[in-house]
Structures are given as structure tokens and as C-alpha cells.
Nucleic acid binder design. Structure first.
Ligand SMILES: [Mn+2]
Ligand SMILES: [Mn+2]
Ligand SMILES: [Mn+2]
Ligand SMILES: [Mn+2]
Lengths: 220, 220
DNA sequence: TAAATAATTTAGATAAAGCTAAAAATATTT
DNA sequence: AAATATTTTTAGCTTTATCTAAATTATTTA
């Protein structure tokens, strides 16, 4: 059994190693979790001793297959709770992450199975992220950055960086959410900002930075 | 903001002081929480410093009005989660307490309000205990021990000691649950065991000890 | 490539929540 | 009213998860 803190580290290291190189740096973990690098080093030692990570001093960390399994189950819980909060309690999709960050640490096999059933075995969470099944299998569909589309491309928003509350709030305001249909109208050469049409209604300009943090699946 | 441990102590002290004398002993807390008396003394100091308890060395502890308010809100959360687990996730009524013991510590005003609404503002939990409202008001109805009834009395089971897993399991087996209608058929003088009829169906004998731990409201 | 800079680890400290063993206060028996 | 037993507190220790400051290793730059 892992402590809440161990679980948070493990999940972070899993996420960082999925979204980039396999070797995760101490600083990147520290930055994400807002703890000091020395604290990260301590925790890496603990998790390595439990064979959930491999670590080479001064070089970097990568997750073991046992660590991966555990991390995926935490992510499963996190995303199922997000669905519950969003669909049943009617939270907005930018409010669910923080609460799920706590709920994910409640350990009770039966609880999560019953929750899954109650929610009718959802496949994606409110941010468009896939929900691993009981066996840890994840159904991943190819996603690209909205910033990579060309003029007249159409797409469905499938994912948004949910670690930044400000971004989520902004997208809420301009009515972009998971499942929104977006058409690229124009791309401004000067600053790479783009003009888009959301759900065949409002047209807005968004900065390149924003477009970089919205992942979509192309539909033509 | 209180830690999980502080919350558990505060709730325990509130419960002990409700069900008995106002002065709660260090040993009784220790017994209930399965920690050592010395650990209890430490925590009493911490909570006293926060003005949630009053404590006189070697004499005893009682809860302050601030402490009471906080304790009641924790109990509110506990019981609402129990309703969720029982009604929505279909847990048995003897399984919900343990899980709610963890869920009650998730602190988010909006979460508990939305949960309350979602559950349609329930008045009692699956063990028959009243659920305090947002303002901490509790609607308490008079309850008596099943062991205090006389022959031919009828009653509704309203409450069962939910701290003892074994008792709950046993009652589940003989199909006694909150809301069950019970008629006292016979009282055995020798050991005060009683013969009861449950929901106008099965007749069973239960020991005096069991009857002492079932609270009911008389219906005639 | 040597110096400067950045990243990482180590050493040592702190706070929370528990523990054991011993001391002190209170309660109960002879 | 002593003696004995029980309850409670104190003193000191442990583990977990943080931190700061200093040391070490790796990387970048001049
Ligand atoms: Mn978390
Ligand atoms: Mn999510
Ligand atoms: Mn609890
Ligand atoms: Mn209950």
C-alpha cells in the first residue's frame, strides 16, 4: 500500500514519462508537484526501494512495469471520479480535477468497480482523456495540437491541458469544451494566432499558446 | 483547516460527549480510536490550542462550541457519503461506514452541497442516524433500545451501532435493517433474550446484547 | 578545455502523528 | 488513612514528508 504522497509522485512520474522522453528529470517532477528537488530525490529513493522506479544518480528516473501498473490504476480512479463529478454532480469540467486529486487516493477495489458500473463504464473523462479499464488497458486515439492544423481543417476537441486552471477558465468563457467542433478559418503569420469557428457558431481568435494546449482529432 | 487525524479525534470526542457525560476521558478516546492514551494527550493539547476543546489536566475533556460545529459538519459529510454509497452504488448498509470514514475528510464546500442536492437532501443515513443540515441543525427523534420493549410492542428499527462490523453482518444475515418493522413476541426471563418477528415474516431469537445495540422508535 | 552555470544529491532540521516507558495524579480498596 | 490500582501525563524515540544550505556532478559557454 502506498501513501497519498507516494501515489502523487508515482502518477506524476508516469505522466511525465508518457509525455516525452523515458528519462524523467528530478527538476521536472519538482516543478510539477511544487516541491523542492531535494524532496523529490528522497521520494525517488523510497519508490526505487519498492521497485516502482529505476533511478541512476544524477541521470534520471524511469518507471518500472509495476510502477506503471499502479500509476494507471490511480489515473483510472481519478478519471472515474471526474466523470462522476461532472455528470452526476454537475460540476463544470474545469472544477473536477482538483477534487478528483483527493478522491483518487481512496483505496477500495469494490468502490471503484461499483462507481465504474454506476457511470456505465465511461471511456473518456470530462477532459477527453481515456479511462483505463480494470486491467489497466488504455484505448488511445491519435491526437494533434490545434496549432498544427491548416486553414479549413475541421476537428473535435478531445483534450485540454488540465493542469492549468487559467486555461480551463478561459476556454469555458469562449465556450470551448471536450467534443466541441472547431474549424480553422485563418492563421495569422505574424504571431501564429488562429481564427477559429466553434460549433458552427462563434468565431474567435486564439493565441498560438492556447492552440498548443488544445489537442484535437481531425475529422477531415 | 484540520488534518484528517485532528478531524477523527474531534468527531470521536463529540460523539463520546453526546452519548454520555460531558467530560470525556482520555482512555475512552484512546479505546475508540485504537491509539495509545499518550497519543490522545498530545492531540488534546493540539485541539485545545485551537480552542476546539477545553481540557483540565487529569480531569477530562469537553468540546467547545466551535469544536462542536466542526464535528457536526464532518458527521454531515460522513452520513451523506453513506447515503451515496448505499443508494447509488448499492453497497450493503454494513459496508458503507468504513469507506465514508475516508470520504468525510475531503474538504470542499461545493462538493458536499452538490452531493446533498443530488441525493435529494436525505434526512437519515443508512443506519438511521440523522443527517445535520448545512447549518449544523440536527433533527433528533426519541429512540429506545429494542431490549426495553415489552411483549407485543411494535417498532421500527432506526439505528444500529455501526462501530461493530460483526453485529452489522449478523443483522444483515437475519435480515434486520433500518426501517424493518419488529414485533416483540416473547421475552425470556432467564437471559433476557427476546423472540421477535421481522417485517411480519421471519421469527427469530436474539440475545439481550444484540437487542441492546438496536435502537428503535415505537409505533404502538 | 577551463570556468561558469545548472541540476542533483547529501546533510541536517522541522512538524505531524504515532509509539514505549516512566512519572505523577486520581480513585479505589483494604 | 494508607496501600494499591488505575488513569493520565511527560519524556524521549520513530517514521513520513517536507524544507534549506552545502556539496557534488553534469552541462554549457567563452
Ligand atoms: Mn492526488
Ligand atoms: Mn481529467
Ligand atoms: Mn474518518
Ligand atoms: Mn452511519
Amino acid at each position: 500500500m502506498l501513501t497519498t504522497s507516494e501515489e502523487n509522485y508515482l502518477k506524476t512520474i508516469y505522466n511525465l514519462s508518457e509525455s516525452g522522453k523515458k528519462q524523467v528529470s528530478t527538476n521536472s517532477i519538482s516543478k510539477f508537484l511544487k516541491t523542492k528537488p531535494s524532496s523529490v530525490t528522497d521520494m525517488i529513493k523510497k519508490l526505487s526501494a519498492k521497485k516502482l522506479l529505476y533511478h541512476k544518480k544524477y541521470k534520471g528516473t524511469n518507471i518500472s512495469s509495476n510502477g506503471k501498473k499502479l500509476a494507471i490504476q490511480i489515473i483510472r480512479k481519478h478519471r472515474l471520479w471526474e466523470v462522476f463529478l461532472f455528470e452526476k454532480l454537475n460540476f463544470k469540467w474545469d472544477e473536477v480535477h482538483k477534487i478528483a486529486e483527493e478522491l483518487e487516493h481512496i483505496t477500495n477495489e469494490k468502490l471503484i468497480e461499483k462507481l465504474d458500473k454506476y457511470l456505465k463504464y465511461p471511456k473518456i473523462d470530462p477532459h477527453g482523456d481515456p479511462i483505463p479499464n480494470k486491467n489497466g488497458e488504455i484505448n488511445i486515439k491519435p491526437k494533434i495540437k490545434l496549432s498544427n492544423l491548416l486553414i479549413n481543417n475541421n476537428c473535435i476537441v478531445s483534450n485540454v491541458n488540465d493542469d492549468d486552471g487559467n486555461l480551463l477558465e478561459y476556454l469555458n468563457k469562449i465556450k470551448i469544451h471536450i467534443g466541441s467542433k472547431i474549424k480553422v478559418f485563418d492563421i495569422i503569420e505574424y504571431d501564429k494566432s488562429i481564427e477559429i469557428e466553434i460549433d458552427s457558431k462563434n468565431k474567435v481568435f486564439i493565441s498560438n499558446r492556447v492552440a498548443e494546449n488544445i489537442l484535437v482529432t481531425k475529422i477531415n
